[in-house]
Computed example of a mutant assay.
Amino acid sequence: MGWWIVILGGVALYFLSKYKFEKVPADAVKVESRSSGRVYYVSPKEQSCSCPDWHKRRSNVPKDDPRRLCKHLISYYIGQDQLPESLSLFKGGLDWFYEKFRGFPPSAEIERFDVGKGEVAFFKDYEAGHWHSVCFNGKRYGWERASDTWTNDTCPEVRNMMIRHQLGVPDDLAEDAIRHVSAERDGKPLDWVIIGQIEGEEIKAKISLRKNAVWHTVLFNGKEISFYLKAGHSKGGGFSDEQYTHMNPPVSKWIGAECKRLRAGIDNK
């Protein structure tokens, strides 16, 4: 009989050494996994969870950082009336990850900046993907950064803020702050590269005067931003400044003036 006790004791010691058993926190709440049905314990105070994902990839992330949240912690917070202040900026993102049965990307690089009307945060949805989440005012918007493609529910205000932030042109510049330098043909007859100067720095824009042209590019301060122009020209055939209002005001006015000047030169030939 004694050897059975020795064997069982050895097995118990093996499992105790192999797996880390922790005391359940006093504030622990049971959360059932929506995918497996297993029950895990989450601690709102410590922002911790008993699931393997939290222990392997999130336990070293500081508290109040959304990357600390596994899908079970997100499930808990979604069920509460109010998020902690430190996570409120990411509410739209947490709602989206909850719908996808996923935790917050633990290795995401989060960029945050203030736009006067509030703070904006954006980060990659998946470690190996191309889409980003842009969180602002309690909502989440999808953004494919390389092509400047947005999900259908994106409001123009959010897109404007992202373009201005990415380009790095200050908003407080005078509308005529960009000085004309030159304009060069860019291969095709109606495609141009316009060059200007803004506070001693060179700014370029690749534009097209073709009526069916929709993609244009602005290059400034080592950054390149592509932007979508829904209609290249107004019904009367002339260029419309209002079609560039999503850009920084000085950039918008500069592009509009250059397009008008180039078109006038073409039409007079």
Rank of each mutant, 00 (worst) to 15 (best):
R164K: 14
D176Y: 02
D27I: 09
E258H: 09
E99F: 04
L229C: 03
H246Y: 12
D27M: 12
K124R: 12
L13G: 06
S107L: 06
R145Y: 05
S50N: 13
K71I: 04
E111L: 08
G142K: 13
H72V: 02
N248A: 10
K18F: 10
Q47R: 11
Y141M: 06
K260F: 01
G138N: 08
S88G: 00
H233A: 11
N60V: 06
S226M: 13
D95P: 02
W254T: 04
D95H: 03
F136S: 08
P105S: 07
K71V: 01
A174L: 04
S43T: 05
A257T: 07
S50I: 02
S50W: 08
E85V: 05
Y19P: 03
G232H: 06
Q166W: 09
L229H: 01
C51T: 02
L73C: 09
N212V: 10
K269L: 07
P170S: 03
Y76M: 04
H216R: 14
R179W: 01
S86I: 12
C259T: 05
F101D: 15
H233V: 11
I163D: 01
P249R: 13
H180D: 14
A177E: 11
P84E: 07
L73F: 00
I198S: 04
P52V: 01
T154D: 01
V11F: 02
Y228C: 03
E175S: 07
H55S: 12
E144D: 15
V29S: 03
I195T: 14
L8E: 14
G187K: 10
I198W: 11
N60C: 01
Y76C: 05
F123K: 15
F104K: 11
Y228N: 15
S182R: 06
C135N: 12
D53H: 04
E144V: 07
K20C: 12
R68K: 15
V193Y: 00
L89G: 00
E202Q: 09
H246W: 07
K223A: 03
F227K: 01
Y98T: 02
G232V: 01
A128E: 15
D125W: 13
H165Y: 13
I178P: 00
V42L: 11
K45S: 12
G138Q: 05
E111P: 03
A128T: 15
G37F: 09
R58F: 01
K117D: 10
L94W: 00
P249G: 09
C259G: 05
P249I: 14
I203T: 00
C70Q: 03
K100L: 09
D153H: 09
M1T: 08
D176N: 15
N152E: 13
H165R: 14
L87Q: 05
V24L: 10
L190T: 08
S59A: 14
W131D: 14
P105I: 07
L16R: 07
E224H: 01
G236Q: 15
P105A: 11
L219D: 11
L87M: 13
C259S: 13
R102M: 10
G103H: 00
E242D: 14
E109R: 13
K206Y: 08
V251R: 01
R68D: 08
L69M: 09
W150Y: 15
T217E: 12
C49R: 12
D191G: 00
P249N: 06
Y228E: 14
Q197A: 02
